[in-house]
Computed example of a mutant assay.
Amino acid sequence: MASSSADDDRDTLKRLKHLGRKLSKNLTSSVDNLLQLLDKLELVLSNLDQNPARPIQESLVLPMKTLISDELLRHTDDDVKISVTACLTEVARITAPNAPYEDEQMKVLVLI
């Protein structure tokens, strides 16, 4: 049983790293492409437990940074904004009770 859990963790790590890289390199791509990546990221995030193991926390760094990029936070498409918000909500749930971002970053998120 432990092997299955370890395999699941490795798969999650790979998916998070892959999606983080892909999203960060495609910030200016088509709305459809962004939505597809954000939907996949939200699905992975929604399946994570609160306070995951350190390797998974480390693999969250790039997706978390990318989600608060100006290209995504100030995107003109409402569907992209909604998908980003859904991902940010999952990040907040996973990292609770700790704030996922610095105070100044959180203030910007509240304003958007």
Rank of each mutant, 00 (worst) to 15 (best):
A2W: 08
S3Y: 04
S4T: 02
S4C: 00
S4D: 07
S4I: 04
S4Q: 02
S5H: 05
A6H: 09
D7I: 06
D7G: 00
D7R: 06
D7V: 04
D8S: 08
R10N: 08
R10Y: 07
R10V: 06
D11L: 10
T12F: 04
T12P: 01
L13P: 00
R15D: 07
R15W: 02
K17I: 07
K17R: 11
L19Q: 01
L19C: 01
G20T: 03
R21I: 02
K22C: 05
L23D: 01
L23M: 07
S24Q: 01
S24I: 01
S24W: 00
K25A: 11
K25R: 14
K25W: 09
N26A: 11
L27Q: 03
S29A: 15
S29H: 15
S29F: 14
S30D: 11
S30I: 03
N33W: 05
N33L: 12
L34F: 03
L35Y: 07
D39F: 10
K40S: 06
K40I: 00
L41F: 07
L41Y: 10
L41H: 03
V44W: 00
L45M: 08
N47I: 01
N47E: 12
D49T: 10
Q50G: 04
R54Q: 04
R54D: 03
R54N: 05
R54I: 05
P55T: 03
I56A: 01
Q57W: 04
E58N: 10
S59P: 00
S59L: 04
S59F: 06
L60P: 00
V61M: 08
V61H: 12
L62E: 02
P63A: 09
M64A: 12
K65A: 08
T66E: 01
T66H: 01
T66C: 05
L67N: 04
I68M: 10
I68G: 09
I68Q: 13
I68R: 11
S69Q: 14
D70W: 13
D70E: 15
E71W: 06
L72I: 07
L72W: 06
L73G: 05
L73K: 09
R74G: 06
R74H: 13
R74V: 04
R74F: 15
H75V: 03
H75W: 09
T76P: 06
T76V: 14
T76H: 15
D77S: 11
D78Y: 09
D79E: 13
V80M: 03
V80L: 02
K81E: 12
I82R: 15
I82T: 14
S83E: 13
T85S: 15
A86W: 09
A86S: 14
A86N: 15
C87N: 13
L88I: 09
A92V: 09
R93V: 01
R93L: 03
T95M: 14
T95H: 09
A96N: 10
A96C: 05
P97T: 08
N98G: 02
N98W: 07
P100A: 14
Y101R: 08
Y101H: 11
D103Y: 15
E104V: 14
E104P: 03
Q105K: 13
M106L: 13
K107R: 14
V108L: 15
L111S: 15
L111Y: 15
I112N: 14
I112V: 15
